[in-house]
């Protein structure tokens, strides 16, 4: 049973949290054409490493806020907790982030607005 240091509420029991799985999966924008196979990288494929894993957690029974965690899946040591939308700051966390196969995928590249369409993509809502 982990003791998790919620960035807002402080250390709390694992039973108050829910784990949201792998972190740093960029969502491809629908405007970017992507093959079904490349899209599947985003939709279905998840890492399950032995060792350091960057994952998302939510303080479900507390402040309900999401955050990122770098956790060793072997020792259960929590290396780092860092905010949503940011990258790990520890060396080990940075290495784990950079090492992910996901960094090179078309799905991740497609998470940014397409350059040519960027100006008009914003307002065209139905």
């Amino acid at each position: 049973m982990l003791l998790i240091n919620c960035p807002h509420c402080g250390p709390r029991e694992e039973s108050e949290f829910s784990c949201g799985g792998e972190a740093h999966i960029a969502r491809p924008l629908a405007e970017n054409t992507l093959t079904d196979a490349a899209f599947a990288d985003y939709l279905f494929l998840r890492d399950n490493p032995k060792g350091l894993f960057l994952e998302r957690w939510r303080h479900a029974a507390g402040c309900r806020r999401w955050f990122n965690m770098a956790r060793d899946t072997v020792t259960h040591e929590i290396i780092e907790i860092y905010p949503m939308g940011s990258l790990p700051k520890t060396k080990a966390g940075k290495v784990a982030h950079a090492a992910s196969w996901r960094r090179e995928t078309a799905a991740e590249a497609a998470a940014k607005p397409a350059k040519a369409k960027a100006p008009r993509a914003k307002k065209e809502n139905g």
Partner: peptide, 18 residues
């Protein structure tokens, strides 16, 4: 299901061939 919205959750997945 909107045909005109640029995005919504599930939009891209609905376009998969299968």
């Amino acid at each position: 299901v909107s045909k005109t919205k640029p995005d919504f959750i599930g939009k891209r997945a609905l376009a998969r061939a299968s």
